[in-house]
Every structure is written in structure tokens, then in C-alpha cells.
């Protein structure tokens, strides 16, 4: 979600940074415990992979397409912590090297996509997969699209309440939850179907060998 800087208040992004930093420290510790010395190269390659995975097309009916996120696939295959680390790195590079996606939005996006999306995907998958493997994969992709969208919509929608002038005029994002929730969620509930299908196809292809 490419929200430019300037729509999130410091009261939002500073705590979000603190929260994300905690997550990064925990993820680093967790990954070091579980992965051997090859962690660094693996992390690097997977970051490059996630970076390009976001260019893969999510076809829509009628010949158009949008970019996929790939979060569901990464989460099912590598688990939430590795996905969180990799997505955070992608966002850092996009912000600092490409200037795409802002630095104030970074912690919110990292928490929403990298953590919220991947945890939801893993939970959905683990819940369904023992009985319905394919439904589990589909749900993982769908949740990985919808849960981050909901989180971002809530954060945006709270801005007028968090930061406003004494006369009520907003200072950052102007719309409340009654606008952001439907505007962000409805398209992602539909796009999530594509993301779910892609997750199902990719993971089954990868496992068939």
C-alpha cells in the first residue's frame, strides 16, 4: 500500500516504530536460533525474491492486472518471522533507495503486511490445512491481503481523531473510519481472491516436485 509520507501523525508512526523495532529484535533473535550460519545469505536472497515477487502480476478479469503481494506465499513457506524480516527489508530499500513508499508509513506497513498479514496467513493455513489443504492455502493468500488492508484502514481512519486542530480540522489524513474501512477493505476483499488463488497455485507447484 503506497501511502505517501505526510498522512500519518507522529503520534502514530513513532509508537509504530517502537513496536516494529521490538518485532525486528525478536525476529532477529528467533531466526538466529532456528537458522544456521547461512541466515544472512538466505535473508538477502529472500529479500530480493520478495522485492521482485511484488512485481508478479495478479490477473484481473478483462485483461488488466495489478501487482501481487506474495505475502501469503512467503508466510506459508517461511513462517511469519522470516516473512516479517524480509518484508521490512523490502520496505526499507523501497523507501531509501527507490524513494517509493514513505519512511513514516514504513513501520505501519511492516507491521500490517509483514506481521499482521503473515501471522493471519499462517493461522488460517494451520487451521484449515489438516483437513482441507487447498482451502488452507487459499485462505492464507486471502487473509494476507485482507488483514493488512484492514489494519492500514484502521490506522488511517484514526488519524482525524488522533491529530486535529482545536477547531476539529484534521492535520494529517482527513477521513475517518466510516470512509477508510469500506474504501480500503472492499477492493482488498476482492483482490484477496486473486491472491488466494495465486498462493494456492504457487505453493502446490512448489510442493509437487
Amino acid at each position: 500500500m503506497h501511502i505517501p509520507d505526510g498522512f500519518l501523525s507522529p503520534q502514530t508512526y513513532l509508537p509504530a516504530y517502537a513496536l516494529a523495532a521490538g518485532g525486528w529484535v525478536y525476529a532477529a533473535r528467533e531466526l538466529r536460533r532456528r537458522v544456521d550460519e547461512t541466515l544472512l545469505p538466505r535473508l538477502a536472497v529472500l529479500t530480493a525474491l520478495a522485492f521482485v515477487l511484488m512485481s508478479v502480476m495478479l490477473p484481473l478479469p478483462g485483461g488488466t492486472s495489478v501487482h501481487a503481494s506474495g505475502i501469503g506465499i512467503l508466510a506459508v513457506i517461511f513462517g511469519p518471522w522470516l516473512t516479517f524480516a524480509v518484508v521490512s527489508l523490502v520496505l526499507l530499500l523501497q523507501a531509501l533507495v527507490l524513494g517509493a513508499g514513505g519512511v513514516t508509513v514504513l513501520p505501519v506497513n511492516a507491521l500490517a503486511m509483514g506481521l499482521g498479514g503473515s501471522v493471519a496467513a499462517c493461522l488460517g493455513y494451520r487451521l484449515l490445512a489438516p483437513r482441507w489443504e487447498r482451502a488452507g492455502l487459499f485462505a492464507a493468500g486471502w487473509l494476507a491481503a485482507v488483514v493488512p488492508a484492514a489494519m492500514v484502514a484502521v490506522v488511517l481512519g484514526l488519524q482525524p481523531a488522533i491529530a486535529h486542530r482545536s477547531d476539529g480540522q484534521p492535520l494529517f489524513f482527513p477521513f475517518g473510519l466510516s470512509v477508510t474501512l469500506p474504501a480500503v477493505l472492499v477492493p482488498h476483499v476482492i483482490l484477496g481472491l486473486g491472491e488466494g488463488l495465486l498462493t494456492l497455485l504457487v505453493v502446490s507447484f512448489l510442493r509437487r516436485r
Binding site: 550460519e37 547461512t38 545469505p41 538466505r42 538477502a44 536472497v45 529472500l46 530480493a48 525474491l49 521482485v52 515477487l53 508478479v56 502480476m57 495478479l58 490477473p59 501481487a68 506474495g70 506465499i73 513457506i77 486473486g194 488463488l197 495465486l198 497455485l201 504457487v202 507447484f205 512448489l206
Partner: peptide, 23 residues
């Protein structure tokens, strides 16, 4: 969808191979 999925699979394959080689 098959093409998009296959593209992702090839990228994953490449990642696995490269991670091993770099390590």
C-alpha cells in the same frame, strides 16, 4: 494465473539455488 504462478515458482527456485551458492 498459471503464468503468474509459474513465474513465482521460478523465482523461488532461483532463490533457493542462489542462497545455497552464496552461503
Amino acid at each position: 494465473y498459471l503464468q503468474s504462478a509459474a513465474a513465482a515458482v521460478h523465482l523461488f527456485d532461483r532463490a533457493e539455488h542462489d542462497a545455497r551458492e552464496i552461503a
